[in-house]
Design a protein around this nucleic acid. Structure first.
Length: 498
DNA sequence: AAAAAAC
């Protein structure tokens, strides 16, 4: 498998300045970001067109020479990101995927299917830690949209024994949508490896088959949500004896007291009871002090990558606050200012705090003649899948969501995020800083430009906003008048979207 | 209150 001992240095925080000015709007894909295909034919089911692109690109992609990738080494980092490594094992940061001793089939998937050229910063640092013996556990924090998914997907794919037709890797995610998205990335990246995968989320009613009537899972990788994974494990359909890598995506939430802590620990303990050595990977953009403290106690001998909270905000995403006289005005601002101007910009996601306000806002915008779709946890599985697919295919432009989609949702065409409500922690008056950061991270994937509009209409909102600014040390500019097209136009121009 | 939930 991977290199045993590497006689090299610990990966230092790299502060290499970009050698070129950042490109205007959409940076060319030079390093391993996730799916980057602009949707050309919204109606086409993507598989056919992808086949074509893949074969066209095959020759070029596979002949990228080493020298060229070294020349490009410092280009196009989405920001001068400071990731600090804590480890007592020497690792060398990978500057090309060739450095990682991946199988040819996996490299082909990276270049041909994913169209990656070189690892992003988090990938370069974390992958040697994940892939090389002694396969230590890892707590990895990195910016939103910096390519964390690729880290753990590649980790799972490269540690599978292809001859063993049993579950060997398990990835636990907080939502159905994230599990589906992750398994799609895994299948695309692993297309040439023959590795099999299963998505463990509740079946929609159309495909429902009782678990007792289903055969045991033979897929080598399982990606899913806690409830279904637990169900499969307890009904003995998901064997865990051969699992050697366990991933928690959005790990801070998966292990938070008010998140999925109990489910996650249960899954982890069951695996560790029955499997000899299982590597645990915890990935998220956020780990607050509380949860960092807790997670560092549940992993064993581990490596750690982290980012200071003051350096976590995405520089390419401009944040604004808009003072509105009342709740009703918020709807008008969304309709008359943001959506009118944003129409030519890309896709928009509007976050609301409750399912109920999602429905109310949905109805208000539809009544005003806007085509919007809404997703929240009370929507049926089928409809959720359909709504997400339509949005990912760019058939819908404006999506209203609860915090269901706050984390991980990867859609590169989103460049406007609207906080209809600011996120607040349950049973306290404190802002939910982590959710705020994840929400705004839905824009600005891989260094792309974006704008966030926070709609405020009370002293409480003002207080929440200023606490958020203070916490992240990031300035939130003011849009002077909610009533002024010029002000909004200007805001989008400053954000680089017009 | 949001998230998962074949209970």
């Amino acid at each position: 498998m991977a290199n045993a001992a590497e006689d090299t240095t610990l990966a230092p925080p790299q502060n290499a300045p970009p050698q070129n000015a950042p490109p205007e709007n959409v940076p060319p894909k030079r390093w391993g970001d996730e799916e980057d295909d602009p949707v050309e034919e919204p109606s086409a089911s993507s598989s056919n067109s992808e086949e074509k692109v893949a074969s066209e690109l095959k020759v070029e992609a596979l002949t990228i020479n080493d020298d060229e990738s070294k020349i490009n080494k410092f280009l196009d980092e989405p920001q001068d990101s400071n990731i600090t490594a804590v480890t007592d094992t020497p690792y060398e940061s990978a500057s090309s995927f060739e450095d990682l001793n991946l199988s040819p089939d996996l490299l082909k998937g990276l270049y041909v299917e994913m169209k990656f050229q070189k690892p992003s910063k988090i990938q370069g640092i974390s992958l040697p830690m994940i892939l090389n013996p002694p396969h230590k556990d890892l707590i990895a924090q990195a910016h939103n949209g910096s390519g964390k998914t690729t880290c753990f997907v590649l980790g799972m794919l490269s540690r599978i024994d292809p001859k063993l037709k049993m579950p060997q890797a398990l990835c636990v995610c907080p939502t159905r949508e994230l599990a589906i998205q992750n398994v799609e990335v895994l299948r695309k990246m692993g297309k040439y490896t023959g590795i099999t995968s299963e998505c463990a989320v509740p079946m929609d009613s159309k495909h429902y088959v009782p678990i007792s009537k289903q055969p045991p899972i033979s897929a080598q990788v399982v990606v899913g949500t806690p409830g279904t994974i637990k169900k499969w494990m307890s009904s003995r359909k998901l064997g865990v004896t051969k699992i050697k890598i366990l991933v928690f995506d959005e790990a801070d939430h998966m292990l938070a007291e008010d998140g999925f802590k109990d489910d996650s620990l249960r899954i982890k303990k069951d695996i560790e009871k029955h499997s000899s050595h299982c590597q645990v990977l915890l990935f998220s953009a956020t780990f607050n002090e509380n949860v960092k403290n807790f997670v560092s106690r549940i992993v064993k001998d581990y490596n750690q990558l982290f980012v200071k909270k003051e350096e976590l905000s995405l520089e390419a995403v401009k944040q604004y606050k808009v003072r509105c006289p009342d709740e009703h005005t918020k709807t008008l601002v969304i309709k008359d200012r943001i959506l009118e101007l944003g129409e030519h910009v890309g896709q928009t996601i509007i976050f609301v705090r409750t399912r109920n306000s999602a429905s109310i806002l949905h109805k208000a915008l539809v009544d005003l003649g806007y085509a919007v779709t809404t997703i929240q946890g009370a929507v049926s599985a089928e409809d959720r899948d359909k709504i997400v697919q339509e949005f990912k295919n760019n058939l819908t432009k404006v999506l209203i969501s609860t915090d269901l989609l706050a984390r991980g949702f990867d859609q590169q065409q989103i460049n406007l995020v609207i906080n209809y409500d600011l996120p607040v922690k349950y049973e306290t008056s404190e802002p939910d800083y982590e959710v705020y950061l994840h929400r705004i991270g839905r824009a600005g994937r891989f260094g792309r430009k974006g704008a966030v509009f926070n709609l405020l209409c009370s002293d409480r909102d003002e207080m929440l906003m200023s606490k958020i600014e203070h916490y992240f040390g990031s300035k939130v500019a003011e849009v002077k008048s909610w009533d002024s097209d010029e002000d909004f136009n200007n805001a989008l121009e400053v954000a680089g979207l017009l």
